[in-house]
């Protein structure tokens, strides 16, 4: 499988990259890890005329806690998340998700920025970001702007990133208090995209009352979605089995899966319910 011909530039700075994006117009694309884009180009599902490779731009890969946020540079590779101490000690949701994304070779290249910017509801990070209430920093010639993850996904392969812009950073409210997070997806075999996936973030106060809940769903809606009714059912509750069951039921009702080879609508709703329940429990355990 071979892509259509295209041009290629490898800018050394963001400014150079913006200039190239403007110069090459709408049919140019950013190349990050390349592990979503290149496979699509090889199958000729995508045919950008020019690739702007942002791998040589310094300063886009980091994981740090700063100003009350966990900040992740857009070019941070999946493998860096897997191996980060900050992540594995306080944000296990990433550890859960990374292990289930593709395979080690793909994770050596795939970036978190690309995973989100691809705008595919089948990818795992979008749901994780929704559960975490992330903000996305988008940069361009006119400066930087910050977009809530809730406003980020516009449609199939379209996001808040406009032409000429680059997603540069992901900001997540830092873990505090009794905070727990978890992710799981059902997959047909290891490395597969999700049949259904659920990301859960929970915070409880000292009395065990849920003060915050974030629930994101993978591949059960046209765009990555947040299970708002489920979150509402949890906040303020003691997270009893009944509360959790209700949240699971809402998530299953509110998602909008399509029938395909991975399963029919009914099965996917069922999975959402089961996995939501399990992930709330896992997050809760981690919060304690």
């Amino acid at each position: 499988m071979i892509a259509e011909p295209f041009g290629y530039s490898s800018p050394q700075s963001l400014d150079e990259a913006y200039a190239l994006l403007h110069e090459h117009g709408d049919d140019a694309k950013i190349l990050a890890g390349g592990h979503s884009l290149i496979p699509m180009m090889k199958l000729r599902f995508a045919a950008p005329t020019h690739l702007i490779d942002i791998n040589k731009i310094p300063g886009l890969s980091y994981i740090k806690e700063e100003d009350g946020f966990l900040k992740i540079g857009a070019m941070t590779r999946e493998v860096d998340l897997e191996e980060s101490d900050i992540i594995s000690s306080r944000y296990q949701i990433f550890t859960d998700a990374s292990k289930l994304i593709a395979d080690p070779q793909v994770r050596n290249f795939g970036t978190i920025g690309g995973n989100i910017a691809h705008g595919d509801a089948a990818n795992d990070h979008p749901a994780v970001m929704m559960a975490l209430d992330a903000e996305v920093e988008i940069s361009g010639q006119d400066g930087k702007r910050s977009v809530s993850i809730n406003e980020f996904f516009h449609g199939f392969y379209t996001t808040a990133v406009q032409h000429g812009e680059i997603l540069t950073e992901i900001r997540i409210p830092a873990a505090s208090g009794h905070f727990g997070s978890a992710y799981h997806k059902a997959e047909r075999k290891v490395g597969d995209y999700a049949t259904a996936g659920v990301a859960v973030v929970i915070r409880v106060d000292d009395g065990g009352i849920c003060t915050k809940a974030g629930i994101g769903l993978t591949n059960v809606n046209a765009v990555p979605m947040r299970a708002i009714r489920s979150e509402e059912a949890l906040v303020g509750s003691m997270l009893s089995a009944g509360d959790i069951a209700k949240a699971a039921q809402y998530a299953a009702e509110d998602c909008n899966p399509s029938s395909d080879l991975r399963g029919d609508e009914d099965y996917k709703r069922h999975l959402v319910s089961v996995i939501t329940k399990r992930m709330i429990n896992r997050a809760l355990e981690r919060a304690k």
Binding site: Y8, S10, L31, G34, H35, I38, P39, K42, L51, D53, N55, V79, D103, P104, Q105, V106, N108, F109, G191
Partner: peptide, 24 residues
Amino acid sequence: SSCGACTILIDGKSAKSCTILAVQ
């Protein structure tokens, strides 16, 4: 990009060389 038969090491990292451009 599914089978790994093309796996090599690039700067020590295992990589699927069918999913990486020569220019990269």
